[in-house]
């Protein structure tokens, strides 16, 4: 564990708490992509199967349980409790275009040809693009509530912080995980556009609005 990974994980944790806070305080999931949330639940469930047979640490165990439970809880809130506030007509990204290629990539790039390892690879590739339905929705509506942008910023910061973590581990532990690093860099790059608007507008006290 190093400072970058710890801050990254805490940022990830914060992003989920901000998302829950957004839904509970506005009593609405307006502006949140159900598809992205469903993809995250898929990512966590397929990646954390090792909960059942591999012990890493208490920290690791608690975080995995939290990520699985919170992502399922968000799905429940969106699908049942606040269902009327979710508008599927603007959440139109075709997730098949993400799931298919990620499955193919997992078959091509993995560390071992076993089901848990294939699912782990799949989850890494899927996580890297899971935000796309959300960003697509943002692009379509052209604006977002400030709290939603804080959620996305915390999520993006988590990914960005994993990059110095990998550089640090490369030097100190001689550890390189090419699959996670490649997918992680792609994932972080997807946030660049968003971060630009977030830093130049939201953090200056303006509303998140994309240029027409």
């Amino acid at each position: 564990m190093n400072i970058f990974r710890l801050l990254g994980d805490l940022s990830h944790l914060a992003s989920i708490l901000i998302l829950l806070q957004k839904i509970q305080s506005t009593r609405s999931c307006r502006g949140i992509s159900f598809k992205t949330q469903a993809l995250y639940a898929t990512v966590f469930i397929t990646r954390y199967l090792d909960l059942f047979y591999d012990w890493v640490s208490l920290y690791n165990f608690v975080m995995k349980i939290f990520f699985i439970a919170s992502s399922c809880y968000v799905l429940y809130l969106m699908k049942y409790k606040y269902r009327p506030t979710h508008d599927p007509s603007i959440d139109t990204f075709r997730v098949e275009y993400l799931l298919g290629p990620c499955a193919v990539l997992a078959l091509l790039f993995h560390y071992r040809f076993t089901l848990p390892e294939l699912l782990w690879s799949f989850s890494i590739f899927l996580e890297s693009v899971a935000i796309l339905p959300q960003l697509f929705m943002l692009q379509r509506t052209g604006e977002a509530e400030t709290i939603t942008t804080h959620y996305l910023a915390a999520l993006g910061a988590y990914r960005a912080l994993y990059i110095p973590n990998w550089i640090y581990r490369w030097f100190t532990e001689d550890m390189v995980d090419p699959i996670a690093v490649t997918a992680g860099i792609v994932q972080t790059a997807l946030y660049l556009d968003f971060f630009y608007v977030y830093f130049t507008k939201v953090l200056q006290g303006q509303k998140f609005e994309l240029p027409a």
Binding site: R5, D9, H12, R47, D50, D54, V56, S57, N60, M63, K64, F67, Y111, W120, Y162, N165, M175, D177, A180
Partner: peptide, 10 residues
């Protein structure tokens, strides 16, 4: 080495 690697990241 890949053979011994454990997925300890989240």
């Amino acid at each position: 080495p890949v053979e011994n690697k454990r997925h300890d990241e989240l």
